[in-house]
Design a protein around this nucleic acid. Structure first.
Lengths: 354, 354
DNA sequence: ATTAGCACTCGATTAAAATGAGTGCCAACA
DNA sequence: TGTTGGCACTCATTTTAATCGAGTGCTAAT
């Protein structure tokens, strides 16, 4: 059977209607809704075909139809494009965002946390943002300082000015000169490398140069590795988890509990976001089972990566019901991505203006 | 009317039974449950009295009784004591915790996050832990470094080895000597003070000594103030929010949404925990409206402050239904408090042992 | 003061009936 | 051959009624 233009139109009408109402949509509704001027009986026949083809399905015998995952997929891939032109339309949203961003840029963490909050409240879906991943960025600066008789502070600044630090216990106290030497050694050996690149050959080389402080250097390198290891590093900001209560299909029965559990236990979601990070840096839509997350089969997730500065990348994910407003979310995410990309340049411009 | 011993016994039996079952308890149950050897009719009379006095209430006419807030209060204040002896009984829990703590002490944040997780899963209630508040701690060490042509990194170490940092934009590049001078100035002027104590007189004094770098010093002081201001500072770790689904009275209807909202919007909860921090450093119980948090009138919150090192204090809060197992939670919190208090000393001991 | 007994209340459970949105299919029509 | 009106049928939802039973309050007897 062929998916001709009329069937497409009907399918699109079904999906659009379902996205708006959340109710299964019947033949009569479509008959009136579209400009096809067809009777409900004809629509019924077409719907039967569409169901056979797997694009829609019936919750039960005497109900209307709702889109299947396959139907949503078709919609997202092929039917949604047209509206993208309206993107420029919503300049107000952009403005609001811009203002918001410029004010709050002092710390990346708060920026992202607030961004998550804003997205959640603008979209009415749950939002999740991963902080930029340190282990992929170059080390820009590293410094040891003695803060106590037996405590050393090690601070690292990564590209994008992410700061990481850790305190190390030491036995001996170091004089200023040794400290200076050590710092020079660390900086010359490590700067410009990503944390992934700090490999064995560099480590042994450093150990040789470290002389009697080999032990300490070893521990520092260990520390660098663990502190900024992928797992610890995965900071995630979430917001609007309770938005799921706005969608009965997500919050009925034990659904709410399971879904919120998945959101709280961030690890699985993180995988999804990371996957999206790898796959492409444009916008990704995962529908139902495509999320590959247990307990999220009734959800869709829309993700995009953002880039604050060169190589300083993270991922944003919007989690909603399968009948979420894909167009709006995609549009919003495009805006956000763009805005975040220019946060730092914008900021200095704004300041010059003053 | 007097609350004689028999009434007390009956009230206690009602509460105990209700805590266990979660169902309104009737006269017949009590008649059999207690060793008072009274008929259900007698119990009924006493219950009517207890209701009149406000310690219990009926959800509806033909139901049993449940404790009122006043009843819970009495229970928590006067009836719960006896069991405290059993505290030493559960050494296994302590052991488990100890092991857990010793392994994970590397970073305070992860320690607290894991602790929250453990508490949530051990108690089956929601858990919330505030990180130690920086603004009450003394500054131990402060250091400026140039990481970029126009970026300065300012790192502060507080008592208890909490590290805070921030990046400051600067116009000029500083040579090593000036930087050294500035660092000496900052350290001599500020070390040993709490952030609250860094007041105007010190600021003006510093400005005088800063000479031509007055501008920068000013900005650093501003930064110190804002970075570690009370609000930004309020990091909170939560876990087990979804536990509320185990208690229908908290998750029926719109309750779940409202309550989870309150948990997500941490600010209000934070106030409660801070209050507890001020009021006493022992264990506090807030029942129902005593929480003074909208949307949490059906909850009880049990809090305690912990102290990692001298002056490094935060608060733990366990949030559950009013019929939560007060005894168990109080006991557990006492253990946790104790364990946390000795984390750092313990750790070094353990290490010496090896 | 305690208790057995009894009428009464009222939420919860179950059963049955009514409703109505929507379908599938068939026969007629253009 | 594609379209349509008509009709019987399905089935979740809503409505109504009936029943159940845990628990109470009150009274009269012990």
């Amino acid at each position: 059977m062929e998916l001709n233009e009329r069937k497409m139109k009907i399918l699109q009408a079904i999906i659009k209607n379902y996205l708006e109402t959340g109710e299964p949509v019947g033949s009569r509704t479509i008959s009136k809704y579209t400009d096809l001027n067809l009777s409900s009986a004809t629509i019924r026949n077409e719907m039967a075909d569409l169901e056979e083809m797997g694009y829609i399905l019936q919750p039960h015998t005497s109900a209307g139809r709702i889109p299947s995952d396959k139907g949503y997929r078709l919609y997202v891939d092929n039917m949604m494009l047209e509206k993208e032109e309206l993107l420029k339309n919503k300049e107000k949203e952009v403005d609001e965002m811009k203002e918001f961003l410029v004010e709050k840029v002092d710390r990346v963490e708060t920026l992202l946390q607030n961004m998550a909050k804003m997205l959640a409240s603008n979209t009415n879906y749950a939002t999740m943002i991963t902080a930029p991943q340190a282990h992929k960025n170059k080390l820009k600066f590293i410094q040891l300082s003695q803060v106590d008789k037996n405590k050393m502070l090690c601070v690292m600044v990564l590209e994008g000015n992410m700061v990481k630090n850790n305190i190390i216990d030491v036995e001996e106290e170091f004089d200023n000169e040794t400290l200076l030497k050590l710092n020079v050694l660390l900086n010359t050996s490590l700067n410009g490398l990503t944390l992934e690149e700090i490999n064995l050959s560099i480590i042994t080389k450093m150990n040789n140069q470290a002389g009697k402080h080999m032990e300490l250097v070893k521990r520092i390198l260990d520390m660098v590795a663990t502190v900024i290891s992928e797992e610890d590093d995965m900071e995630v900001y979430t917001s609007g988890a309770t938005n799921i209560f706005k969608y009965p299909e997500l919050s009925d029965g034990s659904n709410a509990s399971r879904l919120l559990g998945a959101l709280e236990e961030k690890s699985e979601l993180t995988h999804l976001l990371n996957r999206s990070n790898d796959e492409s840096n444009d916008i990704q839509v995962y529908i139902g089972e495509e999320t590959t997350v247990q307990n999220m089969n009734d959800c869709s997730v829309i993700t995009t990566t953002y880039e604050l500065e060169d190589g300083v990348r993270g991922t944003i994910g919007i989690i909603g019901p399968k009948r979420m407003d894909y167009e709006k979310v995609v549009k919003t995410l495009k805006n956000v991505k763009e805005q975040l990309g220019s946060v730092y340049s914008k900021k200095s411009i704004e300041q010059d203006d003053k």
